[in-house]
Design a protein around this nucleic acid. Structure first.
Lengths: 178, 178
DNA sequence: ATATGGTTTGACTTAATGGTTATACTTTAT
DNA sequence: ATAAAGTATAACCATTAAGTCAAACCATAT
């Protein structure tokens, strides 16, 4: 049945692909390896996802989704978002502690093909225009430097790593509490 | 002349390899591409560096070197290193603004082959033992969580990204000045 | 001039990998 | 029971990329 796509082979493929892609990246990942990991034949991979690229895009979009929605909230909180960051940190910690490779993976792949960023923004429903406006406002106010748009997005994503990896240090030296 | 290794072909190879590897990563990089970038024949690459792996190791060690020495200083500053971080930030900003891909590259490749970390530590002259002791002290004092050693190193490296990408935000909201 | 050592190259080999296809196996509907 | 649709697989194909090699190309010293 094509309607039952949330279990069985397809589910196993997604899980296997996520694991392998996050561990090895697009270029390092092997379709055969993903097939083995899913316990199926390599041809089945192409049966469900026509190409490596398509399979990757699905996994990447999923991974990307775990970042940007939060970013959007931060950006919309009218600059005074330091408190919001604190509030969202816990959420990120949960996601990232379950997926240690996630942040570097996303940043790296975003680096590899910057042109996919806009596509991802579209896919994940985040409005670049909205971000652009907010960013321009910040730049005009002199609160942030004027830098390349794509670069800024990447930087913002990088920023999201920090609450995770730096939490112990933040706790100890900046906030003095949670 | 084998004594003149700081200019000419070898120099061009290193520059080209650094550019390509940092942009594409080990798996994404192509020896042919590096050769083209350096304006030489692919066979010359193997004449100077026997294999892709060896060439990569040289570039990776170089890239790695730009991180850890600073880390070592931070680790040795007896926990009260927040001020030291501030002092070192400028140094990092200089390095990273000239090599935007550097941090993600190092983290990603470290992720890809965690076993190379110790080798790198040795190559770059950083004493893991020393770090281990310091880390243990921190854990015992409850100032940081007990986590996998390799993981911690990676996390510390990640932390180094933050001063760079997050500088505008840090300036605006945490420090209020430079 | 020419022999010598280091350097450069085009052409080649080999292995790996993404993708295809023809065939076989399952399930479901009638 | 059986036809049809969907799913899985082994064998195969085409391409790409790392690595090799013998021949050519310098310089420099004699």
């Amino acid at each position: 049945m094509s309607s039952d796509s949330s279990s069985g082979t397809e589910q196993k493929i997604v899980e296997a692909a996520k694991k392998v892609f996050l561990e090895k990246g697009f270029d390092g990942a092997r379709m055969q390896h993903i097939a083995d990991e899913a316990g199926i034949n390599k041809a089945s991979l192409h049966y469900y996802y026509r190409s490596k690229e398509r399979l990757f895009d699905k996994i990447f979009a999923d991974a990307f989704m775990e970042f940007l929605p939060k970013i959007g909230r931060i950006m919309n909180s009218n600059i005074d978002f330091f408190d919001k960051i604190k509030a969202i940190v816990e959420h990120y910690i949960n996601i990232l502690s379950h997926n240690p490779h996630l942040p570097v993976f996303v940043l790296y792949e975003l680096n590899r093909r910057p042109e996919k960023l806009l596509e991802m923004l579209k896919t994940t429903g985040v409005e670049p225009q909205q971000l652009k406006i907010i960013i321009d406002r910040e730049v005009a106010a002199g609160r942030i430097f004027e830098i390349d748009f794509v670069n800024l997005i990447v930087n913002i994503l990088s920023l999201c790593i920090f609450p995770f990896v730096g939490k112990p240090i933040i706790k100890g030296f900046i906030m003095q509490n949670d």
